[in-house]
Structures are given as structure tokens and as C-alpha cells.
Design a protein around this nucleic acid. Structure first.
Length: 826
RNA sequence: GCGGGCGUGGCGGAAUGGCAGACGCACCAGACUUAGGAUCUGGCGGGGCAACUCGUGGAGGUUCAAGUCCUCUCGCCCGCACCA
């Protein structure tokens, strides 16, 4: 047997054995319960970083643990391989994006394999492979057929740096999610997916996501942003026009003192035509439109507006109110026009105050009546309606419903639900993505490419430095084609799809990755999905996780899957931090996983990462902590070797009742650990405490070693075997090696998860704390099965306790068997 | 502004309402050593010689008993944010 633990020798050897034997390959097996564990597939940027290592280490523990528990585990890995960095590399270094991407994949796959992760490599997918994006295109056509993909001209987000449009979800604080440069608005014709059709279901089905962190659910709820209100119109008699407004506070309609439009509103031109205000308003509109999204919408921006010179009529009371244009009204939300109720809306209050507009109180609090004169701001709370004609005296919540009813009766308006969520802009003016399979024909319009012609492959010889147009537009052989409907010469769509489309369905593809007839076999897919445990970073809380939910619902409607939701349970891992901030190249605080593996081994890297922090929390990297993990393995190695001979040939069973006190104690420690590790992994993913309890077990083995001359062979055998199995999901190599060295011919990873014996957890005696008024005053060792009444008697008879309660009145005694006695005295 | 989360030793972090600080790191002392950055043993929240006492951001409360439950409050992080 080897005297020293040399991970560099052990790890590659076992990795090869596992790969050669197909140890982690899985197939549909209906005799077993299935478990699908998935880590978010990476972008092949070049090399793994510690965040990846953390992500995969967590997933691997879950996968290996569930496998040992008897589940048929699906644990795949792949590549989110389309995207900008490959194209930027092409421009900068004159490498083809495909070459750059595939070489990165090779390198990162090797790094993953060196971590000993239990992936089924037979199921690997890469979104840039034609056999993958063929189905991305097929799915696009499915959306197109179902009326869920459409093209429209709109003011869209444009990143000057990336030379492409962005989805709303990809604009973070007014900046591009990728390159962080300022996003501008451009009027362009683009492809959208109708995610808004699913807004309500995306919201409602949040109930099915009990296994998701509260935080992520709330973020999605906020993003979808549902609000209930009413839409109705103000007449503009002099023009014969109507101005529809959207409000959630129709109960305050009698408090309207002005109406205000977004500068982009198409009615503005008509309203100002021929008025003295015309020139000034037009200049104002131009000024506002030029502002970037962030400058336009920040709450601290001063509210500015102008009177249009025209008036509108409030349908509730027939009153004439001035029509304004203001920078704080968003054209994209609601109807792009708002009723101004200064008394009951903070923004309106500020605006009315600034421009001297009227304020009228219509919701009153009868207990402490307010007046406009004494109010210092808008009142947004509940109350009773006043100054509201026939609605006077109603509770405002009731008035809301009554006034909506009235609008509907008058046919001048209706209830309306509005969402903040916008349709998903998915076309990109870039090369390295899945081409949108649409052909434009002069006669037939936008026509779907016939499915049998998929994939529409990316041409290889393309110039990438063409600026703000899609590189594909410059390739004539690609662009020119025939209309599938009428056969006339036609042009291909030259935009590619947002990479988030590719990643919205990859977890379904894993269930049947080599299917050439369909994106997946329905039966295989339904066997494995939904994903039982998904693991990844919080940065995808909205983007990827919302898009995937949307895709899943559409695919369910199309009959391609049974699941309502893609990911049953979600674990959002924390970041890896060093010196107080996230590891990044620019901060120069990167620790290379490859170097750590080289120096200490994969097991040590994994153990440290799992031990240092619970998975959801940020993890502070510590070189000394890694040393500690390595030290633990050396200690483990030595104690296993110390006992190996004792265990050799020991009987498989023994009579626990015959054990001496030291042996009993070791056995108790062992079974306590089995229970703790099992619960920690299964119930709460607290790998850090699971590992610490294994460390305690190893400490207990040292104590046993020092305490006895002749260790109990069968107990030692039981302990070693359980120890190896408990640690196997965390440290697959060293446990496999020690398992083999202690005379086992099969893999430790094929063993079943150890079970604890409840009988072994029992102790003959327990320590009881005796408190007086909640303060610990004495500790006793008593037989474990002692009752509360007996406990109380013993506690009170203690000399020390006697002395302390001398002369006082014992008010009450609480005795908790196995725990404590609390004596309350006065 | 709205929503979510987090505040515990020098550090990472433990604690079904029941001995606060498990486990590990760092540190200190000792052993073995020519040597140790290997290993082993012991110590390690503050104050106090001790008995004891204070201590989980702060202030109240519930309870025999609170890091844990409730109310208020302070600080930090994250998300959304002129969404009508």
C-alpha cells in the first residue's frame, strides 16, 4: 500500500477508469426513480474559473449522492457556445469564431474532466453545432407557426459597442449586460417572441416553484410587474379625438386636474398644431427624445413638462382640464398617457406644484380630515370618496370597482391588467448565432423555411468587421434564395437569434441529444424532466430562468412535453470572492482552478469550496483554507491505513451489545455522522456542515485509536466502509483509491448510501444542565432514560443547587428529559 | 420609494426556542526533531487570581428559557424603480 497520499497520481488513474467503464452513463430505466441534476452550462470563454468549480462541485455531490441512494441519475454537461466573445476574438485575432469556440471547449472539457465530475459525456451538446441549432431553428418555426414570433418596427435598445440590439432583460441600469456601455434607443424592425402572452401564467405558476429561492421568485414577479386598473378616454372636443389613459386609481378620477402625454405620443403633433405653444413644445419633445434611457427614467430626474394649448374633458364629471406633455410619462407603458391627480399621486403632486396646476382632494380620512392647504404631499392611502359626485361616501377600494363598472356600462372604458414585461426581442445583427430561418419574398412576405431544409447553416467565409449590419448580409450565397412558397427569387433573413434562445431548451435536448428526427423523443423527455435540481448563479434570476420558463410553457402547449415548469428546485450559488471582491481579471484577484488542482488535487479543491461556506452564500477564497482541506485528506489517509489491516478479513456483522465503552462511543459517532451527513445533503444542501461532521468522525477514530490496544475488527470495517461512502460524493478520487486499497474490487461510487442504526445513536447516560432562572449552575450525568420527575428530584438534591436555592422560594421547575432542568426561584 | 436578503470570536462559519461559538483557518504553548512551513498534544469571545460576570448590530416585548419568535430601529448587500 502506498504510504503517501499523492493526488496527482491517483486522480488521473481513476478518471480514466471511470471514463473507460462508462461509469456515469445513464439510460431511461423505468424500474428506478429518476433524478435529473443540472448545472447551468457554461459559455466556452477559454478556461474554467472558480465560480464554475463551485457550481460543478455542488452538482456533483448531488448527482453522486442521489445515485448512491438508488436513483437513476441524469447529470449532463454542454456548451452555451454561440455569442459575441467568439466574434470579437475573430475581429481582433483573425481566428474564426468556430475554431476559437471549439478549441475553448476542448480546453474546458479537459479541465472539467480533471475535476472528476460525474458527467454523462455521451450527452454533451454544444449550441453552435449544426445538429443542435437545427432544432433551435425548428423551435423558432414552432413559435412562428403559433403566432408567437413576429417582426415589428419599434424603438429598441441598441448597443454601439456590440453593434446589435438587446432585449429589455439585457439592459442593466441603462447599460449593456455584456460590455457595460451605454444603450441607446433606435427605431428598427426586429423579431420578437410574445412572452407577454404568457405573463399571467408565468406569474401564476410561481406557485409551483416552492423549490426556488424566495428572492428569485420575487425578482421575477417584479420583472413581470402585473398591475390591475382601468383604461378610459378623455375627449378632446375641438379635435374630435380621444385620449385613452391607463390608471390603477380610477377611484381618484374626480381629482383629475390635467392630462399628460408622453413626448413620443402621436397625438402631440395634432394637439399643438396652430397653437402659440407649438414651437416650444416641439423643441421640448425633441430634447426629451434625445436623452438616453437611463437619463430619461431615473427617479431623481426633475419632472419637466409643457402645456399643449389644448383641453380634454373628464368623462366622470364633464370638466375641462389642460393637456400637457411631460418627460415622466413613458410611451411604452399603459397607453402612453396619464391622468394627473396631484392630491393622490406623488409624482403628480410634484408636477402640479412646480407648474401651479390645481389640486383636488377626493379621498378623505374622516377621523383626521385633510385639506389641500395643509397637505405637504400626495395622500396615497385608503379613505372615503369626497368631491366625487354620486360616488361620494364610498370606501375608495369599493369605489374602484364601482367606477370601473360605470366605465364599462358607459362603454367609455374597461378594466385592464397591465404588465411591465415586454415582448422578447430576439434578433441580433451578429454572425455567431443560429440564423433565423425566414425567407422574405416580395409577393409572399416573411415565409418560414421548410423544416426539412433545416439547419440553415452559417456560411464559413464571412467578414466580421462590417460594423452595424449583420455580417451574414454581406454573403450573397447566403442571402439569395428562392421563396419556398412561390419559387421566385427571395432573400434570407440575415439576423441571428439571441443566444438566450439556445439556452432556453438545452435541458430538454440532454434527454435525447442525438435525435435526428425531432428535438427530443417525448417519452424520454417526460421520463427525465422536469429538472429535479438546477444549480447556477443568481445573475440568471430573470434572463435565462424566465426565458426557460416561457419556452417550457409554449412547448407544453404544443404537446412536446408534459412539464409545466422546467426546474423543480433551484439552488443559486454565491460568488467566489477574494480580498473582498468577486474574482475578476481586471481586479487581478483570480485564483486559477487548474493551478489549484495541479498543486493540491481535485478532491482538495472540491472539498475546500464545499466546506468554506454554505452554497448559497458568497465564498471567501482562502489559500490557508485549501491547505486545511489538504491536511484533512492526509489525516484521513493515515487513519485509514492505520486501521486497514485490522479491517482486513473482519466479519461483516457483529453484536453491538458486546462492544466495550470505547467501541460503543465510536459506533455512536459513526451513526450520528451518517444521519447528519444524509440530512445535510438531502434536506438543505449544507455541505459545509456535512463535511465538518465527517471531520468529527475522523477525529473520533483518532480518539479510538489512542484509547484501545486491540481495536474491534468488525466495527473498524464498518466504520471505514461507511466513512469512504459518506465522503465519496465530495472527494471521489481519494475515496475510490482507499476503497480499493482496503480490499474492495468494485467502485465505491456503485455502493449504496450508508444507513444509520437508530439503536446506535442511543447513549447510556446523558449530560443534563441544571439552570437556576435560566443560568447554568450545575451539570449532571444521568441515565438517558430517566424521566422528568426523577430528573427534577436529582437536580434539586444537588448540594450546589441546595446552597443556591437556600432561603428562596422555588416557584416552578421545568425538567426536559435528556436536556435540562430549569429551577425558577424568587 | 417598493420588494428580497444579511448582521454571531481575529477569519470562514455552527447552533429542531434548551450549555452561543461545532468544524476549520489563524494564533499561542508544548512534544518529536539537526531542522520544520511535516506530524502529534493542549489552549484560544471580553473582563476577573477566582467565585463569577458581560456577550449574537441597537432598543423593547413574549417565554421557565431567545442568536432563534414578535414590535420598533440602525447598518450593509441585491433586485425593480417617474410602470400611472
Amino acid at each position: 500500500m502506498n504510504e503517501k497520499y499523492v493526488p496527482g497520481e491517483i486522480e488521473p488513474r481513476w478518471q480514466k477508469v471511470w471514463a473507460d467503464s462508462g461509469a456515469f452513463h445513464s439510460e431511461v430505466d423505468r424500474t428506478k426513480p429518476e433524478y435529473y441534476v443540472l448545472e447551468m452550462f457554461p459559455y466556452p470563454s477559454g478556461a474554467l474559473h472558480m465560480g464554475h468549480v463551485r457550481n460543478y462541485s455542488i452538482g456533483d455531490v448531488v448527482a453522486r449522492f442521489q445515485k448512491m441512494r438508488g436513483y437513476n441519475v441524469l447529470h449532463p454537461m454542454g456548451w452555451d457556445a454561440f455569442g459575441m466573445p467568439a466574434e470579437n476574438a475573430a475581429i481582433k485575432n483573425k481566428v474564426h469564431p468556430a475554431d476559437w469556440t471549439w478549441s475553448n471547449i476542448r480546453n474546458m472539457r479537459r479541465q472539467q474532466q480533471e475535476l472528476g465530475l460525474s458527467y454523462d459525456w455521451d450527452r454533451e451538446v454544444a449550441t453552435c453545432h449544426p445538429e443542435y441549432y437545427r432544432w433551435t431553428q425548428w423551435l423558432f418555426l414552432l413559435f412562428f407557426e403559433r403566432g408567437l414570433a413576429y417582426k415589428k418596427k419599434a424603438a429598441v435598445n441598441w448597443c454601439e459597442e456590440c453593434n446589435t440590439v438587446l432585449a429589455n432583460e439585457q439592459v442593466i441600469d441603462g447599460n449593456c449586460w455584456r460590455c457595460n456601455s451605454v444603450v441607446v434607443k433606435k427605431e428598427l424592425e426586429q423579431w420578437f417572441l410574445k412572452i407577454t402572452d404568457y405573463a399571467d401564467r408565468l406569474l401564476k405558476d410561481m406557485d409551483l416553484l416552492g423549490g426556488w429561492p424566495e428572492r428569485v421568485r420575487t425578482m421575477q414577479e417584479n420583472w413581470i410587474g402585473r398591475s390591475e386598473g382601468a383604461e378610459f378616454s378623455f375627449d378632446v372636443p375641438e379635435l374630435g379625438e380621444k385620449i385613452p389613459v391607463y390608471t390603477t386609481r380610477q377611484d381618484t378620477s374626480f381629482g383629475v386636474t390635467y392630462v399628460v402625454l408622453a413626448p413620443e405620443h402621436p397625438l402631440v403633433e395634432k394637439l399643438i398644431a396652430g397653437k402659440p405653444e407649438e414651437v416650444a413644445v416641439r423643441a421640448f419633445v425633441e430634447k426629451v427624445r434625445k436623452l438616453s434611457e437611463i437619463n430619461r427614467t431615473a427617479t431623481d430626474v426633475e419632472k419637466e413638462g409643457m402645456f399643449t394649448g389644448t383641453y380634454a374633458v373628464n368623462p366622470f364629471n364633464g370638466e375641462k382640464v389642460p393637456i400637457w406633455v411631460a418627460n415622466y410619462v413613458l410611451y411604452e407603458y399603459g397607453t402612453g398617457a396619464v391622468m394627473g391627480v396631484p392630491a393622490h399621486d406623488e409624482r403628480d403632486w410634484a408636477f402640479a406644484t412646480k407648474y401651479g396646476l390645481d389640486k383636488r382632494l377626493v379621498v378623505q380620512t374622516p377621523s383626521e380630515p385633510m385639506t389641500i392647504a395643509t397637505m405637504t404631499g400626495a395622500y396615497g392611502g385608503t379613505g372615503v370618496l369626497v368631491n366625487s359626485g354620486r360616488f361620494d361616501g364610498l370606501e375608495n377600494e369599493i369605489a374602484k370597482a364601482k367606477m370601473a363598472d360605470w366605465l364599462e356600462e358607459q362603454k367609455n372604458g374597461h378594466r385592464r391588467v397591465t404588465y411591465r414585461l415586454r415582448d422578447w426581442l430576439i434578433s441580433r445583427q451578429r454572425y455567431w448565432g443560429a440564423p433565423i430561418p425566414i425567407i422574405y419574398c416580395e409577393d409572399c412576405g416573411a415565409v418560414a423555411v421548410p423544416k426539412e431544409e433545416l439547419p440553415i447553416k452559417l456560411p464559413e467565409n464571412v467578414r466580421f468587421d462590417v460594423g452595424a449590419v449583420s455580417p451574414l448580409a454581406t454573403v450573397d450565397e447566403f442571402v439569395n434564395c428562392k421563396c419556398p412558397k412561390c419559387g421566385k427569387p427571395a432573400r434570407r433573413e440575415t439576423d441571428t437569434m439571441d443566444t438566450f434562445i439556445c439556452s432556453s431548451w438545452y435541458y430538454f435536448r440532454y434527454t435525447d441529444p442525438r435525435n435526428t428526427k425531432a428535438p427530443w423523443d417525448i417519452n424520454a423527455c417526460n421520463y427525465w424532466t422536469p429538472v429535479d435540481q438546477y444549480i447556477g448563479g443568481i445573475e440568471h434570476a430573470i434572463l435565462h430562468l424566465l426565458y426557460s420558463r416561457f419556452f417550457t410553457k409554449v412547448l407544453k402547449d404544443a404537446g412536446l412535453i408534459d412539464a409545466d415548469e422546467p426546474f423543480k428546485n433551484l439552488l443559486t450559488q454565491g460568488m467566489v470572492i477574494k480580498d473582498g471582491s468577486k474574482m475578476s481579471k481586471s481586479k487581478g484577484n483570480i485564483v486559477s482552478p487548474e493551478e489549484i488542482v495541479k498543486k493540491y488535487g481535485a478532491d482538495t479543491a472540491r472539498l475546500f469550496i464545499l466546506f468554506a461556506s454554505p452554497p448559497e452564500r458568497d465564498l471567501e477564497w482562502s489559500d490557508q483554507g485549501v491547505e486545511g482541506a489538504a491536511r484533512f485528506f492526509n489525516r484521513l489517509w493515515r487513519i485509514v491505513h492505520h486501521f486497514a489491516e485490522t479491517a482486513q478479513g473482519a466479519p461483516a456483522t457483529y453484536d453491538a451489545a458486546e462492544l466495550d465503552a470505547d467501541a460503543k462511543e465510536l459506533r455512536r459517532a459513526l451513526h450520528t455522522t451518517i444521519r447528519k451527513v444524509t440530512d445535510d445533503i438531502a434536506d438543505r444542501f449544507n455541505f459545509n456542515t456535512a463535511i465538518s461532521s465527517v471531520m468529527e468522525l475522523v477525529n473520533a477514530m483518532h480518539v479510538y485509536r489512542d484509547a484501545v490496544k486491540t481495536p474491534h475488527p468488525a466495527l473498524i470495517k464498518e466504520t471505514l466502509e461507511a466513512l469512504m461512502r459518506l465522503l465519496a460524493p465530495f472527494a471521489p478520487h481519494i475515496t475510490e483509491e482507499l476503497w480499493s486499497q482496503t480490499g474492495h474490487s468494485d467502485s465505491v461510487h456503485k455502493q449504496s448510501w450508508p444507513k444509520w442504526d437508530a439503536e446506535a445513536l442511543k447513549t447510556d447516560s446523558v449530560e443534563i444542565v441544571v439552570q437556576i432562572n435560566g443560568k447554568v449552575r450545575e451539570k449532571l450525568i444521568v441515565p438517558s432514560e430517566i424521566t422528568g420527575a426523577e430528573l427534577e428530584k436529582i437536580a434539586l438534591s444537588q448540594e450546589r443547587i441546595q446552597a443556591l436555592i437556600e432561603g428562596k422560594t422555588v416557584v416552578k421547575v421545568i425538567a426536559v428529559p435528556g436536556k435540562l432542568v430549569n429551577i425558577v426561584i424568587k
